[in-house]
């Protein structure tokens, strides 16, 4: 959607045009649902966040000032709703297999199993994908939101920063930490899986 399309859509929404509301939902619901599912790992929670997002958006559309695009605005509402839900859940468990964190918060890798050259059938099998999803769900919420937006949904660093109301450097730092944590987790998984098949 171009800026001009966005402006026209905003005008229709602010005028209470029901067809415009439906169009906004049609064009964005799938993305919002997918984002919420990636963030929360539960279809029921994802549906709740989806509904909350559009209810909240429709309620506040009158005050929308187009400082960001409609889609970024919806992403921001959805991400905040998902993060609030995550904060209400149980505290993060810290695994003994996690990378070591130094005093200044830097992550130091300690798994060096090179799984790059494993056959695609091993890397992409259902069990490996299930492990990948569990690994995302175990990331701290602050890292998970950045990783999902940036590496799975494909937003740019700038768009991710705008969506999460973070600085560019905070996005980069959290993305690196998320990637390193996931790498450690996958290294352990693929090392064990490879050992078992020998």
């Amino acid at each position: 959607m171009t800026n001009a399309d966005d402006a026209e859509m905003v005008a229709r929404l602010q005028a209470g045009d029901q067809a415009a509301y439906a169009q906004l939902v049609d064009e964005n619901a799938g993305r919002i649902y997918r984002l919420a599912l990636r963030m929360l790992g539960s279809e029921a929670d994802a549906e709740d966040v989806l509904q909350e997002t559009f209810l909240s958006a429709f309620k506040s559309i009158e005050n929308f000032e187009a400082r960001s695009s409609l889609s970024t605005w919806l992403y921001r509402i959805a991400t905040n709703a998902a993060l609030m839900r995550l904060r209400r859940k149980e505290p993060q468990q810290v695994s003994v297999d996690e990378p070591i964190e130094s005093d200044d918060g830097e992550l130091i890798p300690r798994q060096f199993f090179d799984f790059c050259c494993l056959p695609e059938t091993d890397l992409l099998r259902d069990e490996a994908r299930a492990e990948m999803m569990r690994a995302i769900e175990e990331l701290p919420a602050t890292l998970r939101s950045v990783f999902v937006l940036r590496d799975i949904e494909g937003l740019s660093t700038e768009e991710t920063a705008e969506t999460l109301n973070l600085s560019i450097s905070a996005v980069k730092s959290r993305l690196m930490r998320a990637r390193l944590k996931l790498r450690e987790r996958l290294s352990i998984y693929f090392a064990h899986a490879t050992e078992e098949t020998r």
Partner: peptide
């Protein structure tokens, strides 16, 4: 190399589709 592969594997995860009944309830 494994960090690069990790990112690649996540980018290749299949996108979950929103079930029609979820969309219907949303509307």
């Amino acid at each position: 190399n494994t960090l690069s592969k990790t990112v690649l594997l996540y980018r290749r995860l299949p996108s979950p589709e929103m079930p029609d009944e979820v969309k219907e309830r949303l509307f």
